[in-house]
């Protein structure tokens, strides 16, 4: 997610070629964001909640076994946080590529 160097703000252009280059860059940034967030999504639910649940259950987390907590509580909290990170990140991308809906 952090590998994108600061680009100068792309201005809308009348040339279709330029426009589609910008759009392609926006789409790549979007897909990169998606893939990184979805890897976290996979790790907290399918990883901690299912695949490694027995290993994590060796550890106690307050009154829960850790794996059990991930599968019945932690994963859900993580899902909510992920969506809000996505919203903030996409709104920033919209502005940077000048495709946000307010203009």
């Amino acid at each position: 997610m952090s590998d994108q160097s600061e680009q100068e703000i792309v201005s809308p252009s009348d040339q279709p070629k330029q426009l589609s280059d910008d759009q392609a860059a926006y789409w790549r940034a979007n897909v990169t964001t998606l893939l990184s967030l979805l890897s976290v999504w996979f790790l907290v639910s399918f990883g901690c909640g299912i695949l490694w649940v027995d290993a994590l259950n060796q550890y106690q987390f307050f009154g829960w076994k850790l794996g059990f907590w991930f599968s019945q509580q932690g994963a859900i909290y993580a899902f909510v946080i992920l969506i809000f990170i996505y919203v903030v990140r996409m709104n920033a991308l919209d502005r940077r590529f000048n495709v946000d809906e307010d203009q």
Binding site: L37, L38, W41, S45, G49, I50, V53, F68, S71, Q72, A75, I76, F79, L82, I83
Partner: peptide
């Protein structure tokens, strides 16, 4: 613990 499939399945879909 098996009930987790509903808890995660029916919320994770929203992501």
């Amino acid at each position: 613990a098996d009930g987790a499939r509903y808890l995660m399945g029916w919320t994770g879909g929203y992501v």
